[in-house]
Simulated assay, not measured.
Amino acid sequence: MKGKFLVINCDDFGQSAPMNAAIMHLLEERRVSSATIMAPAPGFEEAAAWCKKRGQSNIGLHLTLTSEFDALRWGSLTGHPSLHDASGHMYQTVEAFERGANTAAVVQEMDAQYERVRQAGITITHADNHMGSLYGIATGRSHIPQVLMKCAKWKVPFRLFRHVHPEDMMAAVPGVERAVGKASALAGTLGVAIPDYLLSHPFEVEEGETYESFKQSIIAKMYRLPEGISETYIHPAIEDAAMLAAIPHWEKRVWEYRLMLDDDLHAALKDAGVTLTDYSFIQQHGRASRLRSVWALGTELLRK
């Protein structure tokens, strides 16, 4: 398979009404590839009802094990005490989750979130993870094997990547190449499709950053996109005074929404030879050879 293919996924669908409004609009206008929905979040019912009414066929599961904002908290669906902090909500940081969560409880919560989405009438096309809490980034305590086994059972792709793009923020994480090698080999062994690359950008508004500078930085990345299947993810939201006051860096979410509607971005994608696609394409083309994956996984596990 030759060419440059890009999935643009809207994370946090179901987080709140202002995020729902932005994501619904972008999906209606086909300015993005897909969205992933948060089963425990307060805006879930609105998002799920909209998806069911439209028969939306590009919705994934945003596995949610953290609740980061002081002004917007939620608990788990299962209510297991190891998934909550002293306030009774999910942990605010990935580190706290990794240190406190019981693995069996995490697996049960993933099942509960999948079932809630299924019972809402949504057939998911893929899965990913809110704040990367399952990856083991903060303390090294990863739940990647558990989530990949779930995706194998659900027969959906998962947000991982085979190669570290040198421009991605993950490239600076010590040991990331080996971790990616093991995780992608396990995905291949289990028959779970994944993208080749993941391209992320800072969640926060950086010092001196404006909408125009943010836009140009994303457009520049489109021209440097590698061959293969890449995914980038955004957190679009409409401008909302209450959220601007209560949620850190809400302005960046508004910029992401604006960017997806900006004709300059879509002209750049075309000019750079990038094809916007979705997770059905990854499901078809994102599987590795199981035999080679087993060999690669064994090699990685035997390395000192």
Rank of each mutant, 00 (worst) to 15 (best):
K2M: 15
K2W: 15
F5I: 11
I8N: 11
N9K: 14
C10Q: 11
D12W: 06
F13T: 03
S16A: 15
N20I: 03
N20D: 11
I23T: 13
M24T: 10
H25I: 06
L27F: 07
L27Y: 09
S33R: 13
A41N: 09
G43Y: 00
E46T: 12
A47E: 04
W50M: 08
G55W: 08
Q56C: 14
N58L: 11
L61N: 06
H62Y: 07
S67H: 02
D70W: 07
A71N: 05
A71W: 01
S76V: 09
L77A: 07
L77S: 04
H84S: 00
D85A: 10
A86K: 13
H89A: 08
M90T: 02
V94H: 02
E98C: 12
R99E: 14
N102A: 14
Y114V: 10
V117D: 03
G121W: 04
G121Y: 06
A127Q: 12
I137F: 13
V147G: 04
L148V: 09
K153A: 15
V156Y: 12
P157E: 07
F158P: 03
R159N: 14
R159F: 09
R162V: 03
M169R: 13
A172C: 11
V173K: 10
P174W: 13
P174Q: 14
V176G: 10
V180Y: 08
K182C: 08
K182Y: 02
L186D: 04
G188A: 10
G188W: 04
G188M: 08
L190T: 04
P195F: 00
L199Y: 01
S200H: 03
H201R: 15
H201N: 12
F203C: 02
E209K: 05
T210M: 04
Y211I: 00
Y211H: 05
S213T: 08
S213C: 00
F214T: 01
Q216W: 01
S217V: 06
I218Y: 02
I219A: 01
Y233Q: 10
Y233W: 12
A237T: 01
I238N: 02
E239Y: 01
D240L: 00
W250N: 00
R253P: 02
W255E: 01
Y257G: 01
H266Q: 05
A267Y: 09
D271Q: 14
Y279N: 09
F281V: 06
Q283L: 14
H285Y: 15
H285G: 07
S289I: 12
R290N: 11
R290T: 14
S293H: 10
L297K: 06
R303I: 06
R303T: 11
